[in-house]
Design a protein around this nucleic acid. Structure first.
Lengths: 201, 201
DNA sequence: TGAATAAGAAACTATTAGTATCTTAAAACG
DNA sequence: CGTTTTAAGATACTAATAGTTTCTTATTCA
């Protein structure tokens, strides 16, 4: 019946789209090659030729989505806040949006199923933006210091990552990320940390 | 061949033990009734009669383990620290130990596979100790206030839970929980938060 | 235009989750 | 103490599906 045959990149994109849609609607639990093939209007064997496991296809599809969209993160992020507080809220808002992709495709289900080494893959995928976020945070703190708002700037990486980790945890455990929570994080946690005296002082 | 037949609670315990061992060694991924039956020296049908899904068996087994062991948490936890810092480190050390059970049985795999409502079950399981921990933290902060060490005591629940959430996140993402991290958490995060001025001041 | 490549269809195999049936040990009961 | 009831345990069966293989043919490329 079908005359036209897609191949190469075109076909691959169709498979990725189908995979992403299925991840969104049915989750990684019940994610299988047969369904992807059906939805992409291709054949199981085509999928099997390219990917070893549903897991690797899922990762590839998400990876592709992220790299093409850069999921909202850029280094040349312009800060418009007039205070440390405003800058932080802005950064974290942006972070939440960028995490939405992971939430949409139910990354937690993947994380759970992943073996140790596959887990590392997801870890990398998620923390790929870390460098950018850490950089942005550093930039924000430097600005604040110039304004005379804060004392601390050079934070240990673990501590600098804490707000991002905490937000990811909320996401993983399906807890809602409300505006209130974000403000509590900034006002009751981050500002006190950044404005506290250094131990060495 | 087999003459003796176990039943009731005795049999159930054998099944739980087998289930826990399998969760530990092979994870919830590849956790199935057949293996449990084999290891417990019983029959598949016995398992099917009692539990609907491998998921519910896994939860029941972990639940059982925790309730019988109380996983190291008690309300009458005696604080021996001579400073807020010491008290906090002590509390968090204890928390990490109590989380070990979840790590051992690869709770993340369960979390990922869980449906929304099943997820709630796990959430409850994990946060069952929250009340105890929050209480302990409150106690610690009150002691510190009496000593004149801090300013803040009545924290919003979300903020009070932050250290526990952060530690859980490290666990979920298989990041090592080193002594260094714990000290960073206390020195660079918690103490500044607890010792910072209230917004209303 | 002919050869090489890869898509797509379909059939086949093996595994396994879940169910059903039957026998009999263990407990309950009179 | 003998009879009835309950539930354990063994085994066989069914249905679904993951993964493989084979074959045909559209598409590309020389």
């Amino acid at each position: 019946m079908v005359q036209k045959r897609r191949r190469g990149a075109e076909l691959e994109q169709a498979i990725y789209q189908a995979a992403l849609q299925l991840l969104k609607t049915k989750g990684f639990l019940n994610f299988n090659f047969a369904d992807v093939a059906d939805l992409a209007n291709t054949s199981k064997s085509v999928i099997y030729r390219r990917w070893q496991t549903p897991f690797s296809l899922a990762i590839a599809a998400i990876q592709d989505k992220i790299t093409t969209e850069n999921h909202g993160r850029t280094d040349d992020f312009t800060l418009t806040g007039h205070s440390l507080r405003e800058d932080l809220l802005q950064l974290l808002q942006r972070f939440i949006i960028s995490m939405q992709t992971f939430k949409d495709f139910r990354i937690t289900e993947l994380l759970g199923e992943a073996t140790k080494e596959e887990n590392t893959t997801i870890q990398q995928l998620m923390s790929e933006g870390n460098a950018i976020d850490l950089n942005a945070l550093d930039h924000i703190l430097t600005r604040a210091k110039k304004r005379g708002e804060i004392i601390k700037t050079d934070l240990p990486e673990e501590i600098a990552l804490l707000p991002f980790d905490w937000l990811r945890f909320q996401l993983f455990t399906n807890q809602p990320l409300t505006e209130r929570k974000l403000e509590l994080l900034v006002d009751d946690v981050l500002l006190p940390i950044y404005q506290s005296k250094s131990r060495s002082d």
